[in-house]
């Protein structure tokens, strides 16, 4: 038994080593032949924990992007501080296109405004927007209000609680209360997995949703879209942009460190535009996650990010 085990072990070890060596050669060879970008694997940093919607999307996207670029794209998760740890790493990486970030724009915009971090929005090159997080204010289907105006009216006579998901969401919902002259209490939750049961179990009156409400079908109703446009799945419900002139950043984007060479950006833009049409990725995003595919090129995205950042500053000033 022991001898057998040793032999099997040795065989397995040899197998692994040979595989690793072969892999190393396969990666090294094209590198020697071509000098044009990309001549080595590209690392895509996702600053969130494994298992979330961004990470899930990122894994499938990386594969499609790799095919489009003709190079391997390796996903690395660097979770922490609402995305600030991964964003710091990318901001400080060499501007050669081999280290990219796939994150929500809040990871880039919110932390520099509110926390002590070593980067700002100017430390990134914005390459493309992939999709928009479908953020909204939602309530239980049997709640005594059907629109956001009715919610405000209800809040004038009742003390309401809502489930928030971190500082950005709390800031926007409290900003709304301030503008409307009502008061409500934010109950902090760690994501939709905690907030939705609170809402369904009647612990809170309404809730922020980062898109998870779409999985609950007609048990939920959407009161207002929190992003700059209406939700893809609820086109009849007004957006916060229409009603209050501000919006929660919702861009899911690809960015690199500031100062990426123009030809690298152009190459990445083209590859990303191709990758997001990959049927497997489209199915994952639109069918399973219920997000729209919303491509934006580098120029449009950069302008959009500037606008979003101004809105964030306005909300922050108002609630402080």
């Amino acid at each position: 038994m022991i001898r057998l085990t040793r032999r099997t072990f040795a065989a397995a070890l040899t197998g692994v080593l040979t595989g690793a060596l072969a892999g190393a050669f396969a990666m090294a060879l094209p590198g020697a032949a071509l000098a044009e970008y990309p001549d080595k694997p590209v690392t895509l940093i996702i600053p969130y924990k494994a298992g979330g919607s961004t990470e899930t999307m990122g894994r499938v996207f990386a594969e499609a992007l790799g095919d489009a670029l003709g190079s391997q794209v390796i996903v690395r998760t660097r979770p922490g501080a609402g995305g600030a740890i991964g964003a710091t790493e990318v901001a400080k990486a060499p501007a050669d296109g081999y280290t990219l970030l796939f994150a929500a724009s809040t990871a880039i915009l919110w932390a520099p405004l509110t926390q002590d971090v070593d980067y700002g929005p100017e430390d990134f090159t914005y390459i493309s927007q992939i999709t928009v997080y479908q953020q909204a204010i939602v309530a239980r289907a049997d709640a005594p209000f059907n629109t956001f105006e009715e919610l405000i009216a209800h809040a004038k006579d009742n003390r309401l609680n809502y489930a928030d998901q971190g500082a950005v969401t709390k800031a926007f919902i409290d900003y709304l209360a301030k503008v409307e002259g009502v008061e409500w209490t934010g109950i902090p939750t760690k994501g939709g997995g905690e907030a939705m049961p609170f809402l369904l179990g009647g612990k809170v009156d309404f809730s922020y949703s980062g898109g998870v409400h779409s999985r609950y079908g007609d048990q939920m109703k959407v009161l207002m879209s929190l992003i700059s446009e209406r939700l893809a799945a609820s086109p009849d419900v007004a957006s916060i942009q229409e009603l209050y002139g501000v919006a929660i950043p919702g861009q899911a984007l690809i960015a690199g460190p500031a100062g990426l060479p123009a030809d690298v950006v152009a190459k990445l833009e083209a590859a990303i535009a191709k990758a997001i049409e990959e049927p497997k990725f489209v199915e994952l995003v639109t069918e399973n996650l219920k997000f729209p595919i919303a491509y934006q090129n580098s120029a449009d995205l950069t302008a959009d990010i500037d606008r979003t950042n101004e809105g964030l500053k306005k909300v922050l000033e108002a609630i402080q």
Binding site: S53, R215, Y216, G217, E287, N288, L289
Partner: peptide, 9 residues
Amino acid sequence: IIHGIVPGP
């Protein structure tokens, strides 16, 4: 999610 099953109630 990756394999096309939408989690939820």
